[in-house]
Structures are given as structure tokens and as C-alpha cells.
Design a protein around this nucleic acid. Structure first.
Lengths: 302, 302
DNA sequence: TGTCCTCATAGCTTGGGGTTATACTTTCGT
DNA sequence: ACGAAAGTATAACCCCAAGCTATGAGGACA
């Protein structure tokens, strides 16, 4: 089975017809017809029964497809990697971070770094956890910046800082004369919960469960900034990390320290396959300073 | 990157030279040289530096190779499946079982089945747990027969019978006037332990640990029949399943019921992808009868 | 310096996979 | 009932990727 056979079989099986497969593959219908026939001849069995002029997959085709699909997937990944290696450039740092870092930390770090290294270009995107790991494994980015990454094979993580959690409420809200809050203080208010798919969401929901507090959750958000904005618009209160809590925009938010030992980690991720360039290395250090600065200054204020 | 590029790059990278790659691929050296050059030209970067007439992989090649290797693996698997589908035959049942079943259960079942269906052919092999699952996923076999399979995606398991464990000792051994034994009775004797890689080994070692008994293990065996033979030759005593315990050969073995509620399961595995043929279906039922017969008759004797 | 090893180049052949044109079959609408 | 539409297969042609042999070119080493 040649590569072309695999591609054609995949397209025909997926689209259900030779004609549509030809459109998908951007070739003529007879070409697909011929390649498919050739594949069947080489395999020694039919992949489709020609019934009433249409194609119906044989049981063999059904079984084979699962494996052909896998091959296609791994081919796709490989081609991505090959392409990303082509456009690699030693004077460029490609970064992906969760949205929380995109507002202040990352811009500040890049701006400072470029003061000293004006010849270095940056590309930045905000992705969620899983996508950052995929992008690293495909060499699409050089650095990933996120909260509490799990261990992922092929990716090395470097702890930049630890941070604490804060409660966000509308600015005019008060809890008696308290200046810091516990989870149990929040029970009566509409609560915006971080989605359990994210690392902080998982951390927090476990913590809240362990405190046996039942919060009145009115919304889930995977993006911490969205949760913060919801607070600003009066939709409720939430708990987030320091970075999100202190970020610019929306003045009418009040930040309360959360009285708990629970901390999260901020880590820089790199691909273990790709040799780290000097620039990537030094920018990671710059990033560490800025993250620490952001976190420790908020601690000072807290 | 065409398939040929992938194959050639993989061969050159693995073998370290164009010449050896050509030998591996069974083509001429210039052909490999040209295809490799073409691949590099299409990719837009060198995969190997030509230094002193030899090839040295570039960092790009090092990164790419991991992914190319994956593609090769999935291709291999797919080709195996394609080949196994080609030689599939509705009049044949292909079975893999752990060695324990190969002595009596499987031969008895096949013999009986063939009395009624003399046109059905069988192919049998004995493999260990992981290999049976792989063979099923590649459609190399129709039925897997083994002890306590874990849950494997893509494979359905059908419980045929439950069985108990037995102690095997040399025939002339006695434990006072006891007729059944506990784990703690075995503490003083040289013990042949089932390897923890196998399902029964795991089950037993957990059980023994939970009883806080420290056995004097003198050997590990992954194959239960080997453990049984070791007992026959006087190397020690062991605990095995009923099937192995009752199998033919080595008369000078005594079988003792083990006084415990611990049971194992005997299951038939099928691929979820492959539609089960009528013959496969009916032979599985035949297998169930024989397994049950073997287990219940041994219970009756016990 | 000659021999051996390795990779690259040149020139030739083959066949897989592309094209267009066309025929065949089934379904569907008037 | 018949023509149009939709789908697949066949025929005749073209091109280039990838195979081959023969040979050149650069290092390593006795």
C-alpha cells in the first residue's frame, strides 16, 4: 500500500464517494477511481462493494480504516513538525501562554527584553493548556507559559514562581470588617467557577470540596480573564490567581487575599527534543524575573 | 514529504549512511542519494551535513526523526492489518492463548468442535497477555483466551468461567493431616512465584502481601506450566490456577485446594472492530463449555 | 601514491498517478 | 416512459518520481 493509496482510501471512505473524494484531494474523479482500484488489486481484496453504482465499504475497509486514520494523523503531525522546522529562525522566540499572561506579564517581559535585544522578534499566541503542549511537541513554539502543568512526556517544565489565590468581588462589596476571606465566607454569593478542565480550576474545585463548602455557582469559565470580567460586570464573585487578579482593566474590582495555604505554580515549558537556543534560554530568565516581580509585588500589597 | 522520502530518511538516519540504507531498502545507492536530496530540497533545509564525505544529522533531522519514526510505526501496524485482512478466511479460526490453555483445554475444545465442523481449520499460538491484545488489534487472530485481562480499548472481553487457586507440591509431601492449605502454611518451603508481569502473578502477589506472609521465593516464572514443572522436578512448591494444576504430564505432583476466596477469571477476547464470524461465535461457546467443564470437574474432585 | 570507502552526478527506463473524453448504470423528475 | 443528473469505470495520453548502471570526486589510511 503506497502513500497515495492510503490518502485516497481515507478520502473515499470519509467522504463516501469517489467524486467527493476527488474534490477533497483536488484531483480528477478518474484518477481517484484508478488509484482506488489499484489499491484493491494490490491488497488482494475489495475495499468497497459497487452496488447500484455507489460505493459501500466492505467489512475489511471498516477495519482497515481505523488504522489508516492513525497513519494519516501521525503523517499530519510529522508534516507540521517538518514545516515548523523549516520556518524556524534563531532570531525569533515563539511563545504560547494561557490568556492570563497575555495582558501584562508577557508584554512587559517582551518590551524589556527588546530594549536590550532589538534584533530579536517575538511571536505570541494565547492557547489553553493542551494546545500549548501540542504546539511544543510540534515545534510550533519555543516556550509555553502556564499554570501548574501536569507531567507531559517529551516536555520539560521549569518552575518560575509560586502564587496564591485571591478573591475578586465588585469594588463596593464588603464582608463586615474583614480584610481577608475564607472559602466559607463566599457561600452566600453568586460564584463564578473556573472550569475544571483548566489546571487552576481543578486545583480550586478540589480545595473547595475539601473545605466542605457548597458554593452557589452561577457560571463556569475556562478563561480566567473572562471570570474576572464577569465580576466587573456584577455577575458574581470569583477566585483567581494573582496574575489575573492584578491585571489591568476594569477598575471596579476589589481584590481580597484568600486565607489558605493553597498555591499554584507558574512554569515555563520547553520541548525536550528541540535544543534550546541561547535567546530562548535568556528570555526564559527574563520571564522569570517578570513573573516573580508580578507575584511578589502583589504579595507585598496583599 | 512523500512516503518514499520518509522511508529513505528513516533508513539513512537509522543506519547512519546512504550506502547501508540502500542495502536495507534493497535499492541502489544512487537512488537513495537522490531521493534524500530531493526530500531536503522539498523541505527547504538540510537533514544531514556532508562533512568529510560522511553524513551527520542536523538538529532538524534529530527532531524530525522522532515523528518520522512514529509514522513508520503506524504504517507498519496498518500494513500488518491489511495483510491479515487479506489472508482472512471465514472457514478458519485463529486463536492465541496463554500457554496454560495450550495443554488440554484448547486441544480438547478444538477436537470436539472439529467432530461436528470438519471443514473448519484452526490456527493456534501461545502468547503472553500483551502480545495477545496486539495480535487482536492487528486482526492477526480472532480469539484470545487468557486469565483476568485488564480493560483494553478496542477489545471486548467475555467471561467464560471463574476459577480458584491451588497449591502444587511434590506428590510425597504432607502438611500434617491437612487436606487443604492456607498461604501461611507455605511459609517454610521453597516457593516458586508467578511473575508479577502476568495477571495471575499480580493477583497472587497482592493476595499474599495482604496476608502478611513472607514466602521463601526461590524462583520466578512467567509461564505457569514452567512453575508446575519446577515443582515436578522438586525445585519447590507453587500456587497456580486450576487449569495449569490439572493439566496432563508430570505424575508426581500433588494438588491441594487453597483455602481462600480469591478467584481469577478466564475470558475470551475479541476485537471490537472485527465483526465476529458465526464460526468464531460458535467456537467461543464450545470453548466456554470446555473451560467450565475443566474448572467444575476439578472443583468436584477438589 | 594507490586503494578503499563514501556520496553525488549523468543518462536512461519504467510505471504510478495525473489529465480529458467518453461510456455505462441507477435514480429521479416531468 | 424518457431525458437529465449523478456516480463510477475505461481509454488514450502525458509527465516525472524513482529505479538502474556507470562514473566522478573527496577523504582516510596503509
Amino acid at each position: 500500500m503506497r502513500l497515495r493509496h492510503i490518502e485516497v482510501f481515507h478520502a473515499v471512505y470519509s467522504s463516501g464517494s469517489v467524486t467527493r473524494a476527488a474534490e477533497v484531494l483536488n484531483v480528477s474523479q478518474p484518477s481517484v477511481s484508478k488509484v482506488l482500484a489499484h489499491a484493491e488489486q494490490q491488497l488482494g481484496y475489495r475495499l468497497f462493494d459497487r452496488v447500484k453504482g455507489k460505493l459501500v465499504p466492505t467489512p475489511e475497509a471498516n477495519q482497515l480504516f481505523a488504522h489508516v486514520d492513525e497513519v494519516n494523523d501521525s503523517l499530519d503531525r510529522m508534516r507540521h513538525v517538518a514545516e515548523n522546522l523549516r520556518t524556524a529562525d534563531k532570531g525569533r522566540v515563539r511563545i504560547a501562554a494561557t490568556p492570563a499572561f497575555g495582558i501584562d506579564v508577557l508584554p512587559a517581559a517582551i518590551a524589556e527584553y527588546r530594549e536590550q535585544h532589538s534584533d530579536v522578534f517575538f511571536s505570541v499566541e494565547t492557547l489553553h493548556h493542551g494546545e500549548i503542549c501540542r504546539a511544543l511537541l510540534e515545534s510550533r513554539i519555543d516556550i509555553g507559559l502556564l499554570f501548574d502543568p501536569g507531567v507531559v512526556p517529551g516536555i520539560s517544565s521549569e518552575l518560575l514562581a509560586k502564587g496564591k489565590f485571591f478573591v475578586l468581588t465588585p469594588a463596593d462589596m464588603a464582608f463586615g470588617d474583614k480584610t481577608s476571606l475564607r472559602v466559607s465566607d463566599l457561600a452566600d454569593y453568586p460564584f463564578i467557577s473556573l472550569d475544571r478542565r483548566g489546571p487552576l480550576g481543578r486545583l480550586l474545585s478540589k480545595h473547595i470540596q475539601s473545605k466542605l463548602v457548597n458554593l452557589n455557582t452561577v457560571a463556569y469559565s475556562e478563561t480566567y480573564q473572562v471570570a474576572r470580567s464577569l465580576v466587573a460586570y456584577g455577575a458574581g464573585i470569583t477566585i483567581t490567581d494573582e496574575i489575573t487578579a492584578r491585571s489591568n482593566g476594569h477598575e471596579n474590582i476589589r481584590i481580597w487575599p484568600l486565607d489558605t495555604e493553597l498555591t499554584f505554580r507558574i512554569s515555563a515549558l520547553h520541548s525536550e527534543e528541540a535544543p534550546m537556543s541561547l535567546i530562548t534560554r535568556s528570555f526564559t530568565e527574563c520571564l522569570r524575573r517578570h513573573v516573580l516581580n508580578f507575584v511578589s509585588s502583589s504579595r507585598a500589597r496583599a
